[in-house]
Design a protein around this nucleic acid. Sequence first.
DNA 1: GTCTATATCACGATAGAC
DNA 2: GTCTATCGTGATATAGAC
Lengths: 213, 213
Amino acid sequence: MVSTTTAAPVPAVPPKRSFREKMHLAREDAIISAVNRLLAEKGFESMTVDEVAAEVGIAKASLYKHFPSKEDLAAAAMVRVMDRARAFLDSLDVTRAPLDLLREVARWTMSVQLAGEMPSLPSENSTLRAVLTTNKAYVDGLMDVSDRLGEWITQAQAQGGINPALPPIAVLYTLYARACDPVLGFLKGTGQFNDEQIIDMVLSTCFDGLCTR
Amino acid sequence: MVSTTTAAPVPAVPPKRSFREKMHLAREDAIISAVNRLLAEKGFESMTVDEVAAEVGIAKASLYKHFPSKEDLAAAAMVRVMDRARAFLDSLDVTRAPLDLLREVARWTMSVQLAGEMPSLPSENSTLRAVLTTNKAYVDGLMDVSDRLGEWITQAQAQGGINPALPPIAVLYTLYARACDPVLGFLKGTGQFNDEQIIDMVLSTCFDGLCTR
DNA sequence: GTCTATATCACGATAGAC
DNA sequence: GTCTATCGTGATATAGAC
């Protein structure tokens, strides 16, 4: 019999429950990844729960043990992308000019879309909106991002970088709209430009406009 | 018995067939109007053929005597809006500066969307794209509009009005994208602006950019 | 060409065994 | 929690009488 003193160190907390918890989270993470990808590729209405289950490799009924509805699946994907956005904001050097920060945010948003990782939801679907607006994680994340961008927008307007004649809310929505700008896909479809060129062009039209400077 | 000489003048061509033809076209016109409105309100996937039939006031089976599929209904609505666009282009004073003409086109496009008359289609639906790309009236209309706008774009770039560093195709797509710009609806949803203010703001960001001039 | 009635099917969601 | 099998619903499209 082996002495108990040779046993590997045992954590004070039994690992079994923690392990199952990790597996549970990993499974949900795989689900959200599939949902995110399918939402980016086909949109909410065209995405089917069967496709999600097939991509994850589990049965559809198992999906519903994790998320109670298709709307909640989409909401989870939106929470994740919102978390990604907040992490990106955290990574920025806030000593830079607010206008540069906003430009980087737009660039990041468009790169996520071009990478096929930006979920796209219809803005008119009522049941989806109901789930989203009652999802605290999503609403909190959206407000956090909006507050931080709003701060930079007003600072950039005060410094003369952003047109002060524009209401800040209009600037904010214009930046948000880059996440679903169809121009990116159109330009990609021509096959004439690579992703970096596309982003640079749309960044140019977004911040400098179509007219000659 | 009344003399035949007192009869009302009779057209050389019997009107009966022409009348039925007019009724037929009027009915199809009503169908397309309903489709156009519903496409603008709910989008292609959420619009149901039952709704279209109900709004027109006819049975669903009658709809399918006029249009063979839901996709063809949407295509007909796209053809009509394309015809409206071409009529608007015809109405413009072509002696004006090309940049002004392009601005007017963007303004018209956004006003149509704000009026709830701009049908919105998904760009990824394959069956819909198949019907659209085989619809000669639609393809011809789209090419005609693109050609005319493309001419003005290159002229405006030659004259220094539009940034010559931008590929004309990027400028064209940026203008097209105003037809489905979600910023219009977002700003309208705030309740803080009227339609004219919204259009002016988005026109400003589109042509002059977010940055201060 | 218009109608009523129905075929057909895809999809979201659930039941129940393990 | 995962599975197989199924339900219920709503949608496109069609049959067939008039």
